[in-house]
Lab assay of single mutants.
Amino acid sequence: RLRTTITPEQLEILYQKYLLDSNPTRKMLDHIAHEVGLKKRVVQVWFQNTRARERK
């Protein structure tokens, strides 16, 4: 499986959303995924990875 490439514009939106809520609901994940044009699962994993990186 190929990795999904996230553009700088998408990253900017994801980080803005992360600052508002680091643990979004399913509904919010759907909305964010639609807004940035990525699959919900990709957005979900991005949030998981970002939370894990923050803990280190």
Rank of each mutant, 00 (worst) to 15 (best):
V42D: 14
K56V: 10
W46V: 01
L19W: 05
T5A: 13
T5Q: 13
K27Q: 10
G37T: 01
E12T: 12
F47P: 00
T25S: 06
Y18Q: 02
L29C: 10
T50G: 03
L11V: 11
Q48G: 08
P8R: 14
L20W: 07
N23S: 09
L20P: 00
R55M: 15
Y15S: 13
W46L: 02
L19T: 09
L14R: 01
R55D: 15
I13S: 08
D21Y: 02
K39C: 13
T50I: 07
A52N: 12
E35L: 08
V36H: 00
T7P: 13
T50Y: 10
Q44G: 11
S22M: 07
L19P: 03
D30M: 06
N23T: 05
R53T: 12
K56T: 11
L19V: 09
E12K: 03
R55Q: 14
M28I: 03
A33L: 01
E9S: 06
R53S: 13
K39A: 14
R55K: 15
S22V: 05
L29R: 03
V43K: 00
L20D: 07
E9R: 06
F47T: 00
L14S: 02
K27C: 05
Q10C: 04
T25I: 04
R41A: 13
L2Q: 13
I6F: 14
Q44A: 11
P8T: 09
Q16A: 12
T25R: 02
V36S: 09
Q16G: 09
E12S: 09
A52L: 06
D30G: 10
V45R: 03
T25N: 08
K17W: 10
K27L: 09
T50S: 08
G37K: 11
T50V: 08
H31M: 12
L11G: 11
R3C: 14
N23F: 13
D21K: 00
A33H: 02
Q16H: 06
L14I: 00
L20A: 07
S22T: 06
K40F: 13
Q10I: 06
R3Q: 15
N49K: 11
N23M: 09
K17A: 10
E9G: 07
Q16R: 08
H34A: 09
K39L: 06
H31A: 13
I13A: 10
D21I: 03
T4A: 08
V43A: 01
K56M: 08
Q10E: 04
D21L: 03
S22L: 03
L2P: 07
K17F: 15
L14T: 00
Q48F: 01
Q16I: 10
H31Q: 13
K27R: 04
Y18T: 00
I6T: 07
D21R: 01
R3L: 13
L11S: 11
P8V: 15
E35Y: 03
E9T: 07
R3H: 14
E12M: 15
V43M: 01
L19Q: 07
T50F: 06
E12H: 10
T7K: 05
I32N: 00
R55V: 14
E54H: 07
A33M: 01
N49Q: 08
R51E: 08
L38E: 01
V45A: 05
K40Q: 13
E12V: 05
F47G: 02
I13Q: 09
K17H: 12
E54Q: 04
P8I: 15
L20R: 06
P8N: 10
A52E: 14
L14D: 03
H31I: 11
V36G: 02
T50K: 09
I32Y: 05
E54A: 04
Q10P: 02
Q10Y: 01
R53V: 11
Q48T: 11
K27H: 06
E35F: 03
T4L: 05
V36R: 01
L20F: 09
H34C: 10
L14W: 02
K40H: 10
Q44P: 02
K17R: 13
T7H: 05
W46C: 03
E35T: 12
A52Y: 07
D30W: 04
E54N: 03
V43E: 00
Y15C: 05
K56R: 05
I32P: 00
N23G: 06
K27I: 10
R53Y: 06
K39T: 15
R26P: 15
N49S: 10
T5V: 08
I13V: 12
Q10F: 00
P24D: 03
K27Y: 07
D30A: 10
V45E: 15
L19D: 07
R55N: 15
S22R: 04
L20S: 10
R55Y: 13
G37S: 06
I6C: 11
R1L: 15
R26N: 15
G37V: 01
R51I: 06
G37F: 03
E54D: 11
V45H: 11
V43N: 03
E54V: 05
L14H: 01
R41W: 12
K56G: 11
V43G: 00
Q16C: 12
G37R: 06
E54M: 08
Q48W: 07
V45N: 04
T5P: 13
L11E: 11
L20I: 10
Q48R: 08
N23I: 05
N49P: 02
R1Y: 12
K40W: 14
H34F: 09
Y18F: 14
S22F: 05
K17Q: 13
A52T: 04
V45P: 02
P24E: 02
L14K: 01
L11H: 11
Q48C: 08
T5C: 09
V36Y: 01
E12P: 01
Y15L: 11
T4I: 12
E9H: 07
E12A: 10
I13F: 13
S22D: 12
V42E: 15
Q10S: 04
L11I: 07
R41D: 15
L29K: 02
G37M: 03
L14C: 01
I13K: 09
R26H: 15
Y18L: 03
R1G: 14
V43W: 00
F47Q: 01
L2G: 13
K17C: 07
A33F: 00
R3P: 09
